[in-house]
């Protein structure tokens, strides 16, 4: 299992692996918003939590289709399915590798991007906490969409349509957590909801993803 994780991380870092792609996309989204909205600090600061979360969702989405598609194309998904590792474990490790290469860099870089959007000073710690709690759910839910579309040619658009609705609860509570933090209100409820959603997703979704892969490999 750990061998799979280290293989996937190695592949992400090597040529064509797409490491940093999500981060660069996030930077561009966050930079474009002030151009579209205008430079008024008041408006930007108010929409900053939502923009930062939306940017994270899209950045995460960008690299989802390669989670299983590359392994399917070169035949290693067949071999992994017949190997003595449970497919649920394979899915979990792939989600973890995706999070490390996409979600974690976003968590680290988000405070810098917050500056571009005039985010309130008190909100920075909540920004990091909400992304840290929420982005694992994005990766794990993403494996489900990727598993459903694995045999399809150019299934990327379908994947987005399948996965984005599943991201709604995480988006709502993630952005709410930052907004409440910025205004100095109690943050316990969105914090617990966000954490609850992520743990539930990690506990349940790998089984669904593994089942979807089994059907698609037939």
């Amino acid at each position: 299992m750990l061998a799979l994780l280290s293989r996937d991380l190695k592949l992400a870092i090597r040529a064509g692996g797409g490491f940093g792609l999500g981060l660069a996309f996030f930077l561009i989204v966050v930079t474009l918003v002030p151009f579209g909205v205008g430079p008024e600090g008041g408006i930007l600061a108010r929409i900053a939590p939502g923009i930062l979360w939306l940017g994270s969702l899209l950045a995460c989405l960008l690299s989802l289709d390669r989670i299983f598609a590359l392994d399917f194309e070169d035949g290693s998904l067949d071999l992994l399915a017949t190997a003595p590792v449970p497919l649920e474990g394979v899915v979990t490790m792939k989600a973890l590798a995706h999070w490390i290469t996409t979600g974690l860099p976003l968590v680290v870089a988000a405070p810098v991007f917050g500056v571009l959007l005039h985010l309130e000073g008190a909100a920075y710690q909540w920004l990091v906490i909400s992304l840290l709690l929420g982005t694992p759910a994005l990766s794990v839910l993403g494996t489900f969409g990727a598993a459903l579309t694995v045999g399809l040619k150019r299934g990327g658009l379908l994947l987005s349509l399948l996965v984005l609705p599943l991201y709604v609860p995480t988006l709502i509570f993630g952005a709410e957590l930052i907004r409440r933090g910025a205004e100095g209100m109690a943050t316990q409820v969105p914090l617990l909801m966000l954490g609850g959603i992520t743990t539930a997703v990690i506990a349940v979704v790998p089984f669904a993803s593994a089942a979807a892969i089994r059907v698609n490999l037939r």
């Binding site: 293989r7 090597r14 070169d74 035949g75 290693s76 992994l80 017949t82």
Partner: peptide
């Protein structure tokens, strides 16, 4: 746990070296 399957495609990762490809499968199969 007695079967090893090899299909039409070899399941190789093009950016990994020969040793890395084999090491991966060796550790998957223990």
């Amino acid at each position: 746990e007695s079967m090893a399957y090899a299909g039409h495609s070899d399941g190789l990762k093009s950016t990994l070296t020969v040793t890395e490809n084999l090491d991966f499968w060796a550790s998957v199969y223990g």
